[in-house]
Amino acid sequence: MALTGLFLCLFLVVHLAGNLQLLDASPEGRLKFNAYAEFMTSFPLIKVVSYVLYFSILFHAFDGLLLALQNRRARPVRYVKEKPMANRTWYSGQMAVLGTLVLVFLVIHMKSFWYEMHWGGLPKDADGNKDLFTVVNAAFHQGWYVALYVGMMGVLAFHLMHGFQSAFQSLGLNHPRYTPLIKNVGILFAVMVPVLFAMIPVWMFYFNA
């Protein structure tokens, strides 16, 4: 769980860096983004990493849901009165729900862009690359799609708020000197990454013609 979770965190950073190029909507910016997308789908080394990524998502989701199911079974009779907020954050106890929402979003998200890029038969841009920019731009001009995207980034933020530091603890990395630092970096990561992701569709919705 921890290794795949941290690998997914690393992926988020790379993915975010790529997406930020969408903010440049000038004709050259669009061509550059399309060229980048073409590179990411064709370069052999990236292809290998992308298979590791697909495997990580599936393993992380499958194992996470299996663990959550076992956890439910471990308490067949529930308490009549329970005060969960007294001793833990609400999101630390809802990782499976948050994760499932992220998974649902991932499917929609991959259908919109990843599937289109691979098999969608997109028109070509001036450089002969598939014109993914136009597809993204169109998607992010639909209010409901932007709202869904922003909402789901909120869900991801809470998943990471617990998940980031949790992964270190799972790996046995707990130290009085470094754990507070890891926790703070985790909160920063959990806020910054989804906010930056969410900023892109909002920006495109309001400022890209």
Partner: peptide, 8 residues
Amino acid sequence: GNCSNTGA
């Protein structure tokens, strides 16, 4: 059950 580090 399995530990998910809630800290409760």
